[in-house]
Design a protein around this nucleic acid. Structure first.
Lengths: 210, 210
DNA sequence: TGATATATTGAATTTATATTCAATATATCA
DNA sequence: TGATATATTGAATATAAATTCAATATATCA
């Protein structure tokens, strides 16, 4: 016998992650189809042959990445849902954090780009399509419920919660997509502009700003 | 001599347009790289060989399509700029029309998707990259100016006009991208939700709605 | 240290797609 | 109608990328 089983497993997983990171970079820049195995291998600093010891194809890497990306957005929406505050404050806080994240986290932008890319293409693996089908709507549903609760609470504007949830996520996603190619450091984003679509204006707070 | 020159030119242009339409459909569904010449030819109902009589490559078609798409969005923003109303009303009207168009025009959704795809990929022809560089920001600048004028007029909220213009277009684009794969007919979109990010609330109008 | 399992490479092969091209069809005008 | 230019096809060829594989390197444990 040579190496211990667990040690091997760990090394293997580390290397796979290195490959996934390299692939993510390339997929986000070029898209799945335009990315060649060679591109991923070069980015990861390995020979293309080695890649096949870890993944049978670039499509399999894509499936792993899409799964991770979808889980991340679902987790983020759950952490908002589980906050110990009222629904209005949840929406305010979530938008504040999301806008901040768009400005500062390249990983978040990559995640948004990958999901948008996958959602808008039929040229992706069957497995990825299934994952999107299963998971994509969860964040929309989570926000929809918070908005409905906020309307009862009296802190969120009237209107179909489904529609408001669509506006919530499409604004954030549109912004992330834009920022991923225009890292516009001259402009500081104010999340309260987006928040004003959802939150009923509080007279006192408005006074405070002036 | 066989056929008249002009007649030939017209026929040629008609056929080229048929090919462009087929290519647009495929590019929007699969992206540039995943679309094969054969896909476009089949969609257009011709043999692949014939395609080369009209375009030297799929990349050339893509450049034509991107140019058209960019010109369309620029034209749309100019028509808003040239309206005979105050800036606040321009923004309100533009959003009303844009949301309506998202709900009803597949062509508009395709245009948004194509531009987003091109803007978010380095795997597109050099020429397309140049066109995007040159033309992409024009609609942002047009809306920025209207917003700045609206702030002076007193109908548009305070805040960096550049930032507000980014929120304007990224919200619309995010919505269009979402709608192009989720033609959610159960939900009727209300443009006033987006408008509330930009327009100062008019007490009288609000009363009217209740 | 040597036996063994796994990692790693890059060239050889396979497969997919783009591109060319010879053959044929069709439309127009004299 | 026949001469001519252009349209059209699909098979032949070229090109690019994916995949395999034999050769070699490296790490671990007895």
């Amino acid at each position: 016998m040579a190496r211990s089983k667990e040690q091997n497993e760990r090394m293997r997983e580390t290397r796979k992650e290195k490959i996934r990171n390299a692939a993510l970079l390339q997929f986000v820049k070029q898209g799945l189809s335009a990315t060649r195995i060679q591109d991923i291998a070069t980015e990861a600093g390995i020979a293309q042959g080695l890649l096949y010891h870890y993944y049978p194809s670039k499509e399999e890497i894509f499936v792993d990445l899409i799964n991770d990306a979808l889980d991340k957005t679902i987790e983020a929406s759950y952490s908002v849902r589980d906050m110990e505050t009222g629904p209005g404050e949840k929406i305010r806080f979530a938008l504040e954090r999301l806008v901040e994240t768009i400005e500062h986290s390249q990983t978040f932008l990559d995640t948004c780009r990958l999901i948008t890319q996958a959602t808008n293409s039929t040229a992706i693996p069957q497995q990825a399509q299934v994952l999107i089908q299963e998971k994509r709507n969860i964040p929309y549903q989570v926000i929809e419920k918070i908005i409905a609760a906020g309307q009862i609470e009296g802190t969120i504007v009237a209107g179909d919660p489904k529609m408001l949830s669509i506006f919530f996520w499409t604004s954030i996603n549109g912004l992330a997509i834009y920022y991923s190619t225009n890292n516009n450091r001259e402009v500081k984003l104010d999340y309260r502009v987006i928040a004003s679509m959802f939150l009923i204006k509080n007279e006192k707070e408005e006074e405070g700003e002036k």
